[in-house]
Simulated assay, not measured.
Amino acid sequence: MRTDPDLAADAARGSDTAFAELVRRHQARVRGMSRRLTGSASDGDDIAQATFLTAWQKIATYAGGTFSAWICMICYREFLQVRRRQRPEIELDETAEIIPFDRSVPDAGDKLDLSRALAKLPEAQRICVTLCVAAGLSHREAAEATGWPLGTIKSHVNRGVAALRKHLAADQVA
């Protein structure tokens, strides 16, 4: 079985089949990561597709190391680009009446699952838990992908995992 660096080198020389094998090996991880980052299957799939398109275009820049960390770094950057484009400009109407909305009351038939629990985490914790726990990157690889300090990654992962455990245990989710 050929290694990821060997396949990447062949793909950099133009081998479609080598790149297709890399996609086959890593698509589940990238897709899962992007879906967890966005909280949406369709948005996540769009980001995963953009990730592999970017990876194909930049395969010659892969300089070794774990291919999964390299592809997850691209996925995270694609997520950031999409998020930046989606941030709407909000104009506040000073005369508008504020109507309180209680989001804490769940619908009767709702079940809490991991996706919902992840969505309740602060964004930085959700990103770090997704990168390190769901995508399987090391803390160091997640720090490289995000540009955040290693200690920040570790604390966000620890706090995020603890919050998930607490939240899921409180709702008796297995």
Rank of each mutant, 00 (worst) to 15 (best):
I99Y: 05
L137M: 08
L164W: 03
T61K: 11
A169H: 02
I99N: 06
R31S: 06
S42L: 14
L80C: 14
L137S: 04
Q81E: 15
E144G: 12
A60G: 14
L22W: 01
Q81K: 15
A143V: 07
A108T: 13
A134W: 06
A9Y: 05
F67H: 05
A142M: 11
K58R: 14
E89I: 15
S42Y: 13
L164C: 07
L114S: 00
M73W: 09
L114K: 05
R24Q: 09
E144I: 13
S68K: 07
S104H: 08
W70V: 07
A8M: 09
R31F: 00
A124D: 04
F79V: 09
Y76F: 15
T3P: 00
G109T: 09
G151D: 09
V23H: 02
D107R: 03
D102E: 11
A20K: 03
F101I: 13
H167K: 06
S104W: 08
L92P: 01
D93F: 11
P5C: 09
K154R: 15
V173N: 00
H26L: 04
A143T: 05
P122Y: 08
L131N: 01
V161Y: 12
T146R: 12
I99G: 02
A63R: 15
A135L: 08
G147Y: 13
F67N: 01
R29M: 06
V23W: 02
I153H: 02
L7F: 01
R140M: 13
Y76W: 15
A142P: 01
A28C: 09
R85Q: 15
A9Q: 08
